[in-house]
Design a protein around this nucleic acid. Sequence first.
DNA 1: CCAGATTAGTTGATGCGTCAACCTTGTCGT
DNA 2: ACGACAAGGTTGACGCATCAACTAATCTGG
Lengths: 151, 151
Amino acid sequence: MAALTDPQAAAWNSYQRMRVRLSGVLGRELAAATGLSEADFDVLVAVNERPDETVRSLALRCGLEWEKSRLSHQLRRMEQRGLITREACEEDSRGSAVRLTERGRELACQARKHYDAAVKRYVMDSLTPEQIAALTEISGILLDRIEITHR
Amino acid sequence: MAALTDPQAAAWNSYQRMRVRLSGVLGRELAAATGLSEADFDVLVAVNERPDETVRSLALRCGLEWEKSRLSHQLRRMEQRGLITREACEEDSRGSAVRLTERGRELACQARKHYDAAVKRYVMDSLTPEQIAALTEISGILLDRIEITHR
DNA sequence: CCAGATTAGTTGATGCGTCAACCTTGTCGT
DNA sequence: ACGACAAGGTTGACGCATCAACTAATCTGG
């Protein structure tokens, strides 16, 4: 009479454990290697990937799929630590623009290398190409499912 | 020269998006249905599944794989909200024991139903049995990989 | 038996994430 | 033009998670 069958519960349990532990080790390695949190990393990489000097907070927010207050808090902390600077936005005086500091740019590159290497080491090297494809497919299906019912 | 090939990067991106969005909707539904956070839920279920009246914090901590300070903070908040009570531990006077309040027990059951139903609806109903098996296998492999290098 | 090391748990500080309230600026219908 | 409404962003409060420092009780070797 349970909502989940045994194999379903097993899948959910191992997924949950994997998810927690994986993001734990990745976050820890990133912090040890660069002093950055995953939130810092996401922002730095997103800004750095842009060709322009500066990026609008709005664009950042859409790219990251973050709430506006989350980005605002995060940018404040990153500005305090000297990773970014913020300037007024030309096109829309409500907006703001983000620019990486030199240190921010450096750390973005370093962190990218470390992070990708860790993902490769912990995840990709452990799975067959078929399993990687299955993971992509499963994630895509679940994403679609969520998108459909929440929009 | 990137650390990840295209299919690998695709897998990682969709996994990451799925992970964030899924835990978002599940947490939100749980909160809407019961007023509980996932942390509350984990604790309530863990305690409720025990046959005994009370559970030692230590046992809880091991079962949940939580840090001791995390559990301590969480229990303090849950005690304040009337979900649990704490008593001295008989066997070891350093320890403490956790007991569910009536309200805690009720919520644990309700929450379990809601949560399992949501997992079924968002995840299990969207995947084939083969995909569910693949998810279990992949998670198990990654878990093992992490266990091996971190212990 | 006792001194030193472990272990259970608490506390405080800090970063992260969400929500609701708010301010400013743009937009659009009339 | 102007008034209502929407959108960009900030702020404050709170819960969650981690780290380091601490207290107190237990264990262990000698």
